[in-house]
Design a protein around this nucleic acid. Structure first.
Lengths: 161, 161
DNA sequence: TTGGCTGCAAATCCTTTGCAGAGGT
DNA sequence: ACCTCTGCAAAGGATTTGCAGCCAA
């Protein structure tokens, strides 16, 4: 992750090439394009958003390529897929440390966070049930500060009537 | 929730009738059938599982009715929908206290758990970002004890060759 | 040259909707 | 009677797959 807060593109391309080579796959400019577009967009994107953005650079790229590329990127560990409530999957670049999500149910803004207490509790819980933990999802849904204010203002207006 | 560990059917039917009446809807035997089937099956079921089971009692019931009924049940607060990773939504009867999930990535068995430490951490995190918390998802994915053994046995067999 | 990659279109899977008739109040 | 509920079939959205040609190694 560089100073821009986004993972470094060249680094990502290198990791992708490594994975591709190690698994008897082949390099391709489309796959690197998807990676480029990914770094330009916000951290959470849907397959369709990637497709539209990728078409700005390569009008002939198809949805199938996006999905197939996303699978390769997931296999290589560069990307994770997330199903938030409702709608399509979101894909997210991985940058070493993972994070959980706090999502506004009104404006859909996503805040990432990380918490050691929860982390440890997860290990403890898995151990209690004899599970070998592989991954987890932890998402909190609520109203962000801005949307709370908006609601409060709206309620006030109603009262004033 | 009664001694069987399943919510009480009569109680559920009563709650459903209340909701239906309060909202100008109408009672129907199909909706109560879905509720019955729900209590007979494990806690987590897909729409398709409900459909097949319901057809044992009423061969003519259709998928649309299941989905429409599930929406009514959700509106009434009796059921919640969950999108675990991959595949179809699962629906779950609500019985007052909520719980989180530990899911085996191999055999898909689901263990429910409840943890105060995590619960408190969630409140704390939401507060830190000024969010007003409404709900959350917390799912741990891993290998259950049985599937760990199966994998170990398989690995051993390979080694023996 | 080989075998992976791609676009395109068709196919799937899950879920929702339109419509005409059945059923509850 | 009125308005909701239902089955059926068709529509929908997201994702996957089959296939024939393209491209990298």
């Amino acid at each position: 992750m560089n100073a821009t807060g986004m993972p470094d593109l060249d680094e990502l391309k290198r990791l992708l090439r490594d994975h591709v080579q190690r698994n008897g796959l082949k390099s391709s400019s489309r796959r690197e394009l998807v990676l480029e577009v990914f770094t330009r967009m916000g951290r959470h994107v849907t397959a369709d958003e990637l497709l539209r953005a990728a078409r700005d650079s390569d009008a002939r790229i198809g949805a199938a390529t996006i999905y197939r590329t996303l699978r390769v990127l997931q296999d290589s560990g560069l990307v994770v897929e997330r199903h938030f409530e409702g709608g399509a999957s979101q894909f997210e670049l991985v940058d070493g440390d993972h994070h959980d999500h706090l999502i506004c149910i009104e404006c859909k803004v996503i805040v990432e966070f990380d918490d050691d207490v929860v982390e440890q509790a997860q290990e403890r819980l898995a151990a209690r049930f004899g599970f070998e933990l592989h991954s987890h999802r932890h998402e909190l849904y609520g109203l962000c500060p801005a949307c709370q204010k908006k609601r409060a203002a709206k309620a006030k207006r109603r009262t004033a009537d």
